[in-house]
């Protein structure tokens, strides 16, 4: 069964049917982008407000483009630099947004659970655009949408996905591994011992090194961004050493090319750290496709969610 939800807070709140509904809804939007007029009137008169408490370029602009292409009014509050520093709490800000009659609130925050808290206090649909280490559900959906294109079906059974890097601080790893597993794929991880925590799900087996991981014959290598900004302490000696031990360097890349492995990355890429320069021009590198699908998937999410504010139309 697939009933539209008020909020999108974490992948765990969706069942397989619901995920499939959202991903299916994204497909016509992808077709739309091939036309000269890329806009539909679906959300005309509705308001999307974005609250990014953490800097972001691609996610916030992706939501903005998605809202615009659905003909919604989009406003972003530069909260990182305004009232927050004056001691206003997130909920105070949300109250203000309520007064502005926002129908959708897109929120990113460095603390886990903030979107959950906000969702309890507003009739607007809350879309989690990344909270702390917790969740990034639209990233997971766009990743699944991208592999849907590549695999040609929504059943990922038998597919193997290797996630490489900082699992500990990654909301992408949590959300994307969850959705991939739900769709039938097997997910395993590789990364520094400091950044692959034992608290991860048991079925996410850990490899010791690239050689062992490549012997597993993954279909997809998903590189995570090294989140220097999240690390108040040292988890590996240097970015140079990270690249040589866990980076997709030229030598490993050649092997990946030979075997036709797909490469993904949530962006933005630290060139020369997670991957060598040449990877981005590889024809099975899906990084740009992920960005493109991000817009269609976020349109599908806005289209699928049901804000409580609509009921006031009677």
């Amino acid at each position: 069964m697939s009933e539209p939800h008020k909020d999108l807070l974490q992948i765990e709140d969706l069942n397989k049917d619901e995920i499939e509904s959202i991903l299916a809804a994204a497909q016509p939007f992808k077709e739309l982008f091939k036309r000269s007029v890329k806009k539909v009137p679906t959300l005309q008169g509705k308001t999307v407000l974005s609250l990014f408490y953490e800097p972001s370029t691609r996610t916030s602009s992706s939501f903005e483009v998605a809202a615009n292409r659905l003909s919604a009014d989009f406003t972003s509050l530069a909260v990182a630099s305004s009232s927050v520093v004056k001691g206003e709490t997130v909920l105070d800000t949300v109250d203000t947004l309520g007064a502005m009659r926002a129908d959708y609130i897109v929120i990113r925050h460095k603390k886990a659970g903030i979107p959950n808290l906000v969702a309890e206090h507003t009739d607007a649909s809350v879309i989690n655009a990344g909270d702390g280490f917790h969740a990034h559900p639209t990233q997971a959906l766009l990743d699944a949408s991208t592999l849907y294109d590549v695999f040609g079906k929504l059943d990922f059974s038998g597919k193997k996905i290797l996630i490489v890097g900082d699992i500990l601080h990654s909301r992408v790893a949590r959300s994307t591994s969850r959705i991939m597993t739900m769709l039938g794929a097997e997910v395993r991880v590789l990364g520094p011992g400091t950044l692959v925590p034992p608290g991860r799900p048991d079925k996410m087996k850990k490899f010791k090194n690239y050689e062992e991981a490549m012997d597993w014959k993954p279909d997809v290598v998903y590189l995570l961004r090294v989140q220097f900004e999240r690390q108040g302490e040292q988890f590996f000696p240097s970015s140079g050493e990270y690249h040589s031990v866990y980076g997709l360097n030229e030598e490993r890349f050649n092997k990946i090319k030979d075997e036709g492995v797909w490469v993904m990355h949530p962006g933005p890429v630290n060139r020369g750290v997670e991957l060598a320069d040449s990877v981005t021009t590889y024809d099975r590198c899906l990084i740009n496709r992920q960005v493109e699908n991000g817009i269609a998937t976020r349109m599908a999410v806005l289209y699928w969610l049901k804000p409580q504010t609509f009921q006031q139309d009677g």
Partner: peptide, 19 residues
């Protein structure tokens, strides 16, 4: 303890809360 807010383990991993 660092910035931890709950026990470090499976639950903190799932909730994305520092442990």
């Amino acid at each position: 303890s660092g910035a931890g807010a709950m026990n470090e383990g499976k639950r903190s991993y799932k909730l994305g809360v520092p442990g």
